[in-house]
Design a protein around this nucleic acid. Structure first.
Lengths: 347, 347
DNA sequence: CTGAAAGCGCTAACAT
DNA sequence: ATGTTAGCGCTTTCAG
């Protein structure tokens, strides 16, 4: 009748099994852990009792007594588990650690420092062996305590400000520079830049790459062409419309994130300018190659980033104590059409 | 020098803190658990000692003694965490349970019964309170034992064959029927059907819906237009090309899964038939609205499915023991262009 | 308000 | 080959 939290029926313990099998509980322990040194006859009896009672060893008690702090669990905290980039990275991590008997706890931070820390704390409380973290842009000094408490930490996509950790990321600056140079080579001089909120590491790196190429080409940096901060594809769409309907519109657009690329595509369509204004996006997007024009992108390898990070984490857990460092996973410019549109003199 | 598994430095225990604070360990326990009944003075001293030592309570030991079997951890096993549908569903589950202090273990099964069972076992071994499962098409009698061992089980996207569990899924049959009727209404009579491997529940439901509408319209079912089994977009692309270049090609295509829709788009492009052959896909695809023609789809709500399943799971964990049942989340036909192409008489 | 003793389910160390 | 004892870190129970 009542709806109070169901008190689960007590699970059978090692002693229940022992009694049923008519042996000491230590014998059961031996069988359950495959320690050997038990007569086949008893093994059979114990196995039977285990099956009949549906006995399962309590891993908490086991670990407690054994004293090895390993839970064979790691955590993954990404900005958004539903974003294709993060989802691919996430899956790659899971796939790498699974054969080692390691399971993965997952959470999204939404680029919010509080959410991030809460997720991390929830994982740390459960004594994860390590965490793969996509850190927000805030100071991460608090991670020192987490490390001291025993968690290995690998950051992905960006370094953690104020904390020295292994890091696996894309060559953001170089990739952005190549994309920008690609547009400059076609003659574009007014290239808009759309970036994440300005405290984001990747946004800044990509912006830096954009500026690198402008400098190389002696094109003056124009602040009015840079828009940092639109969140999600809808905000990006509005921003692009604003840029293109403004007084001095760009002839090309560089969107530094996948959702922004989608927003830009929508805006260009809406204004009927998709064949006139060039577009290059950072991070590939599903079906980008099927659009008209197909979208030129700087493709990242989320799978490679995730795989690399996971392997590195496992190595650290195995005791590798070589100096911490950063691994850069290369990006690839994929020309598909939208990035090869020549500048149009509009009036 | 050696690379043997690092023996983590022993963590401080409740006794270490007690000694440091000059109190009994029970007092520390009281403070740590906020039990009250401790003088402010001692609370302060204990708090300080906790901070200095970086003490964290061992949840395993705590739960062990307390006897409440709850780990506040649930598992999620989906076919592919990187697939947009599953990723969205996954995130929705995480978001719902997180405010309750519940964390989520995640895994992909790749529609493989062995992977599925291994993932489940890895979670069960860690004593998850419940699991949200997208079951493969095989018999799931083995779940009985898992339930007996204490795990609440909710299936999503499909029921588990041979196992009675709460289930949250889309109105597959009806959605497919509406899509097919939509095409029939435009005059199509040769409509191809692309489905997942034939033992998949959703594939069969959608095929049934397709047949329902054919029957209603007195159109004879043609086996040669049905292709079950292409895995992934590339296989789907080849299948569609095969269909369209065959002796009696379809005038419309119904793809019953998101990756197949993408494959079909590629095939139609490749053959230059995208304005001549109609296409409707089951499950929405990012940028589908930006293609030319834009792709008509039967949109599912992965977020609603995940949210519903997670809430249901929490309710079960709270002791709700009402009869198990199935909840159907409606789909929505979104006409965008590709599904409104009239049949072309080809020769 | 504080503390000592007992024991959660299990395994290490030591018997037999 | 099997069993006994102690104790992992913590909370419960019961005494002061």
């Amino acid at each position: 009748m009542s709806k109070d939290p169901r008190r689960p029926p007590r699970r059978p313990t090692i002693r229940d099994v022992a009694q049923r099998a008519g042996v000491s509980f230590k014998t059961v322990s031996r069988v359950v852990n495959g320690e050997g040194g038990v007569s086949p006859e008893l093994v059979t009896r114990v196995r039977a009792a285990v099956a009949e009672l549906g006995y399962r060893r309590d891993p908490a008690a086991s670990i407690l007594r054994r004293g090895d702090a390993r839970t064979n669990t790691i955590g993954v905290v990404l900005d958004d588990l539903a974003n294709p980039f993060s989802a691919a990275l996430h899956r790659a991590v899971v796939d790498v650690v699974r054969p080692r008997g390691v399971v993965v706890l997952s959470a999204s931070s939404d680029e919010d420092a509080v959410e991030e820390q809460e997720a991390f704390a929830a994982f740390a409380e459960r004594r994860v062996d390590g965490v793969v973290l996509m850190p927000t842009g805030t100071d991460h000094g608090w991670l020192e305590a987490e490390r001291a408490a025993g968690a290995e930490i690998i950051t992905v996509d960006r370094p953690a400000p104020g904390f020295d950790a292994d890091c696996v990321l894309a060559d953001n600056r170089d990739g952005a520079a190549r994309a920008t140079a690609h547009l400059l080579r076609r003659g574009h001089r007014r290239i808009a830049f759309l970036g994440d909120v300005s405290h984001t590491y990747t946004a800044n790196e990509r912006l830096a790459g954009y500026r690198d190429s402008l400098d190389d080409a002696d094109v003056e940096f124009d602040d009015s062409l840079v828009r940092m901060g639109p969140q999600g594809s809808e905000a990006a769409r509005e921003t692009v419309i604003d840029l293109l309907t403004g007084p001095a519109p760009p002839t090309a657009i560089f969107t530094s994130q996948n959702l922004m690329t989608i927003g830009a595509v929508r805006a260009l369509r809406q204004l009927g300018l998709h064949h006139e204004v060039a577009l290059i996006g950072f991070d590939d997007v599903e079906l980008a190659d099927m659009l008209d024009p197909a979208i030129t992108v700087v493709a990242q390898s989320p799978v490679e980033i995730g795989t690399t990070a996971a392997k590195l984490l496992l190595r650290r857990l195995d005791g590798d104590s070589s100096p911490r460092g950063t691994q850069v996973v290369p990006t690839r410019l994929i020309p598909r059409g939208s990035g090869e549109i020549a500048p149009l003199v509009r009036r």
